[in-house]
Amino acid sequence: MKKLLEWVGLGLLVIGGCSVLHHYVSWFDKWAVVENLPLFEGHKLYVSGAVIVLGLVVLLVSDKVSPEPRPATGGGRRPALPEPAVPEPAFDADAPDWP
């Protein structure tokens, strides 16, 4: 889901940016989707800006979505091993010497 939202946000950002560039310098004729729709006649620049803002919002929302968990197939990190026990000394250094 996270990757899908990132791709959708990037697509909206590119479409809105290309529409704004097409409005000012007439580049990206085929990519300017907003410029080619007769529905937005007279408001194409505002709609292009709204598409850019919508793309940024989708990208920000995609950062909040947690990535899909991996299936538990035994891969990934292993649990931490317990600390090894420190062995007791074989003799007591404080014990008196036997005669």
Rank of each mutant, 00 (worst) to 15 (best):
Met1Thr: 14
Lys2Leu: 03
Lys2Cys: 02
Lys3Cys: 00
Leu4Met: 13
Glu6Trp: 04
Trp7Asn: 09
Gly9Tyr: 00
Gly9His: 04
Leu10Ser: 10
Gly11Ser: 13
Leu12Cys: 14
Leu13Asp: 04
Val14His: 05
Ile15Pro: 03
Gly16Cys: 05
Gly17Trp: 01
Gly17Ile: 09
Ser19Leu: 06
Leu21Arg: 11
His22Gln: 08
Tyr24Arg: 00
Ser26Asp: 10
Ser26Glu: 14
Trp27Ile: 13
Phe28Leu: 14
Phe28Lys: 10
Lys30Val: 13
Trp31Gln: 15
Trp31Glu: 15
Val34Ser: 08
Val34Glu: 00
Glu35Lys: 04
Glu35Gly: 11
Asn36Asp: 06
Leu37Glu: 12
Leu37Thr: 14
Pro38Lys: 09
Pro38Ala: 05
Leu39Val: 02
Leu39Arg: 00
Leu39Gln: 02
Phe40Pro: 01
Gly42Val: 10
His43Thr: 04
Leu45Arg: 03
Tyr46Thr: 12
Val51Tyr: 13
Val51Gly: 12
Ile52Ala: 06
Val53Ala: 07
Gly55Gln: 09
Leu56Ser: 04
Leu56Gly: 08
Val61Asp: 05
Val61Ala: 14
Val65Ser: 03
Ser66Trp: 09
Pro67Met: 02
Pro67Ser: 01
Gly75Cys: 00
Arg78Val: 09
Arg78Glu: 03
Arg78Ala: 05
Pro79Gly: 05
Glu83Tyr: 03
Pro84Ser: 10
Pro84Gln: 00
Val86Arg: 07
Pro87Ile: 09
Glu88Met: 10
Pro89Gln: 11
Ala90Pro: 03
Ala90Arg: 08
Asp92Glu: 11
Asp92Trp: 07
Ala93Ser: 04
Pro96Lys: 13
Asp97Lys: 11
Pro99Leu: 15
Pro99Ile: 13
